[in-house]
């Protein structure tokens, strides 16, 4: 990896027009297929992001050694950092590729950018991973407000300004998986039958808190806490607090984890006495 530290500086560096940026990409043709590294030279357009550079590579998939290869596969959706689909490991750090702007990130001739798929999810192809377990975790904690029924429930409960402000930021989670990729307690698990006992992750604990603190959503609080009390729940968190450092939405994940810890403590004691 060469000089790409520029993205941490605040004064925006002037990108050199017509420069060449090298992309070193970890490639894999599909589940169980071997991994290989390929490097491509790209002349980024003004305002380029990682995705537009990948599009350039797809238009002419030739490596720096002149080898013709297949286009690099990736996943994306919104292109404005709200869907989470384009998350990948860029120069060793997990983040969204759509909001990684090349003019800032690699302003100089010969700058190199290393792209890897997230390591905590099974690879579908190249940079595209399958985040099914992340969504399964949301089902496990019933991350919703139950309103289905045979009659109208009427208007929803009123929420105070303070409460809505504190819950709003929790609701901005885009299920990107950054918090899981950076978590030392979250390991890749390919077999779905092991998901119910594997560590659920910070995003799910945050969603459990979001809906526990909603007046109607709180109906399911006991069920959520039963799940989070068990194996793979909040007790499996090791408090490394990487999740909160990498969350692109700046969600106070460690506060959510501690809140769930408190709820679970109270829930367990109450259950023990109540039977």
């Amino acid at each position: 990896m060469s000089a790409t530290a520029s993205h941490t500086t605040h004064a925006r560096p002037q990108a050199k027009p017509g420069r060449t940026v090298r992309f070193r990409i970890k490639r894999c043709d599909g589940p169980g297929k071997p991994v290989r590294w390929e490097t491509f030279a790209v002349k980024p357009e003004a305002g380029a992001n990682i995705i537009s550079c990948l599009q350039q590579i797809a238009a002419s998939p030739v490596t720096v050694d002149g080898q013709k290869t297949t286009p690099v596969a990736w996943d994306s959706g919104c292109l404005e950092e709200v869907c989470g689909a384009c998350t990948m490991v860029i120069n060793g750090k997990v983040r969204q590729s759509c909001s990684c702007l090349i003019d800032e990130y690699a302003p100089n001739e010969g700058d190199e950018i290393t792209l890897e798929p997230m390591s905590k999810f099974p690879v579908v192809r190249d940079l595209w991973v399958d985040r099914a377990r992340l969504f399964d975790a949301l089902k496990r904690v019933k991350a919703w407000v139950p309103i289905d029924g045979t009659y109208s429930l009427g208007a929803g409960p009123r929420e105070s300004a303070e409460q809505s402000e504190s819950r709003y930021v929790m609701s901005t989670c885009m299920s990107c998986g950054c918090c899981l990729e950076a978590c030392p307690q979250y390991q890749v698990e390919e077999s779905p039958e092991k998901w119910p006992t594997s560590f659920i992750g910070a995003h799910a604990m945050n969603q459990a808190r979001l809906f526990n603190e909603h007046a109607t959503g709180a109906v399911l609080k006991g069920a959520r806490l039963d799940t989070l009390m068990g194996e793979g729940g909040v007790n499996d968190c090791g408090n490394a607090q990487n999740c909160v450092q990498v969350c692109p939405k700046h969600i106070p994940l460690t506060e959510s984890i501690a809140t769930i810890g408190r709820s679970v403590t109270i829930h367990a004691i109450a259950k023990w006495f109540r039977g």
């Binding site: 408090n239 106070p252 506060e255 501690a258 809140t259 769930i260 408190r262 679970v264």
Partner: peptide, 9 residues
């Protein structure tokens, strides 16, 4: 944190 005594940052 585990027991839920300290919550906010």
């Amino acid at each position: 944190i585990t027991w839920g005594l300290t919550i906010s940052r």
